[in-house]
Every structure is written in C-alpha cells, then in structure tokens.
C-alpha cells in the first residue's frame, strides 16, 4: 500500500522566539494575577515584620495590667492608641502581631532549609543511583508518610522540651517527603539526559555531576515545593503552638496568640480573629506565590 510522504509540516504554533527565556518568564509572571498578588502581600508582610520597630513604638513584651483586653479601633471603645487592641496582659496586639510575623517567617524559612536539605539529598540519591538505593529511600519515604505529623511532632516536642528551635528541628525532620518525591522524579529525568552522559564520559566525578549538572536543573520544581512547604510549616507551627507544645510564651507566635485568646473569644472574638487573619494572609500569599512560580517556571505543566 502506498502513502504520501508528508514532508514535515511546519508546527502551527511555531512562533519565533523574540525574547530571552528570563524575559519571557518575567512577562508571564507579570500577567499571572495569583503570582503578583502573592508576591505583593508577602513583600508587605515581610517588610512590616522586619521593620517592626520602625512601625510601632510598642514593645511586644511590655505588659500593662491597667490596659488589659482593650478592643481594636473599629469597636465602640477602641482607640488609635492601641489600634488592634491589647491582650490579656495589656500588651499591644499590633506590636505582637508584627513581631509574631518574624517568628512565622523564621519558622517557615528555617524549617524548609532543614527539610529541603534532607529531602533533596534523599531524592537526588534515589533518582541518580536508582536500583537498591532507590528502593531503600522509597521505603524510608513510606515510613515517614505513615507517621502522623502533628502527633509525632507534639510527642517529640514534649520529649526534648518545646521551644522555637525544637519546632524548627522537629518540623524540618518531618516535612521532607515532598522534596524527596519531587527531587527523585526530576533527577530521574535529568540522569538520563545527554549532558549528564557527556559529563560522565569526560570523567567528571559523581559529586561534580550532581552539584553542577543535576541540582541546577531540578532547582525550579524544588523552589516551588519550598514555598508550598514553607506555608505548611507555618501552619503546623501555629497548630503546635496552639496546642501548647510549640513556641513558648512570652514569644508572640500567632498560633500562641490564638491559644491565649481562646478563653476570651466568646466576648472578644477579635483576639482570635486578628492573628487568624494574619496567618491566613501570610499562608495564602506564600501558596499563591508557589502556585504562580510553578506556572511561571514550567508553563507546559499548567493545570
């Protein structure tokens, strides 16, 4: 049977590339409403918590028993003096909120540094070496997934004594699974690529190949996971602090503020609303940024 030799039809979407990849990425980013909203909100929250001393004159730890549970400014007895009110010990709520942001951000970044290092190392090893190494690491991931995170984190914190450092270490040791899964599959794709074979053929050591060929090429998905896990860690810290085994008083963690406000929430709901809204805004901004990054860096995987 005969057939026409269809000489390679030009792809219909073959629009000539006009800009550099980075410029196109920037253009996609600017057009992505979620990414932009997340970036702006996160930048504002970051700046506010870093520049807290410049924004408020109040000390977040200074108690004033004569001014306990003052309502925020939009309520009947509210004043601009403490525009978000004061807590049960008369501490300025706005100041505590700003300094609390530092704790959330610190937890997010530090946890991801720990968990990202562990997860990436395991994932790259599994993806690069394959075979038995892959099996063993896959098994470790399974064990980790079987452990209930909140429960184990609480138990571990109770064991070694709860503090900011404990929270970071415990969460860092628990939240590496997604890094490992993503790093593994990304490395598997890279390990088979020609440039890795080329690097091997010219006698590069495994360490050099991993550091100079594999890691830079799997960085994009890892950064996306890092942002999303940062949000995850911040939420978990808040939950642990709320349950009394996370960050300890008098540090102004948002989760702790909600826990301390719980007994007053029936009459003064704002004591939990204010830190709650801050928490939602921060986590939402980070998640939007992460989802946006995924779309911007890998538009072909857009969901």
């Amino acid at each position: 049977m005969t057939s026409v030799s269809a000489s390679g039809a030009a792809p219909l979407d073959d629009v000539p590339l006009r800009r550099s990849p980075l410029a196109r990425m920037a253009k996609r980013a600017l057009r992505h409403p979620g990414f932009m909203a997340g970036t702006v909100v996160l930048a504002v929250l970051l700046l506010c918590s870093l520049a807290a001393p410049l924004i408020t004159a109040y000390d977040p730890y200074a108690q004033d028993i004569s001014r306990r549970l003052l309502p925020p400014v939009w309520q009947a007895k509210g004043t601009w003096e403490h525009w978000l009110g004061t807590d049960k010990l008369g501490r300025d709520y706005f100041a505590r909120l700003l300094y609390g942001g530092r704790i959330s951000l610190l937890i997010g970044v530090a946890t991801v540094l720990v968990s990202g290092t562990i997860g990436t190392a395991l994932g790259v090893a599994a993806g690069f070496f394959g075979g038995r190494v892959d099996l063993v690491i896959g098994y470790i991931i399974n064990v980790r997934l079987a452990l209930p995170v909140v429960l184990v984190a609480l138990a571990a914190a109770a064991l070694v004594g709860s503090s900011l450092n404990t929270v970071i270490i415990v969460l860092g040791l628990l939240l590496w699974d997604r890094f490992a899964v993503v790093a593994r599959s990304a490395t598997q794709q890279i390990a088979g690529a020609d440039f890795v074979a080329a690097a091997r053929s010219i006698g590069c050591s495994t360490r050099l190949i991993v550091l100079s060929e594999v890691l830079p090429n799997i960085l994009n998905p890892l950064i996306v996971i890092a942002t999303l896990e940062m949000a995850h860690a911040i939420l978990l810290e808040a939950a642990l602090s709320f349950l009394g085994l996370g960050v300890q008083p008098p540090l102004p963690s948002w989760g702790l503020m909600i826990a301390e406000g719980k007994q007053f929430m029936f009459f003064s709901p704002w004591v939990i609303t204010v830190p709650g809204v801050a928490l939602v805004a921060l986590v939402l901004a980070i998640n939007l940024l992460g989802d946006g990054l995924r779309d911007v860096t890998a538009p072909e995987n857009r969901s």
């Binding site: 349950l243 029936f266 939990i272 709650g276 939402l284 939007l288």
Partner: peptide
C-alpha cells in the same frame, strides 16, 4: 481552594464556634 489550604484547622474551628454556636 487556595483559601482552603491557607486557613488553619484550629482557627477555622474556633471561628465556626463563634459564628454558629455562640
């Protein structure tokens, strides 16, 4: 969805109590 992932469970629970129970 994005909002759902950002709201802490315990805070949602407390807010539901304030709204629907109190």
């Amino acid at each position: 969805c994005a909002l759902g992932q950002a709201i802490p469970t315990f805070w949602l629970g407390l807010s539901l109590i304030i709204l629907f129970a109190v």
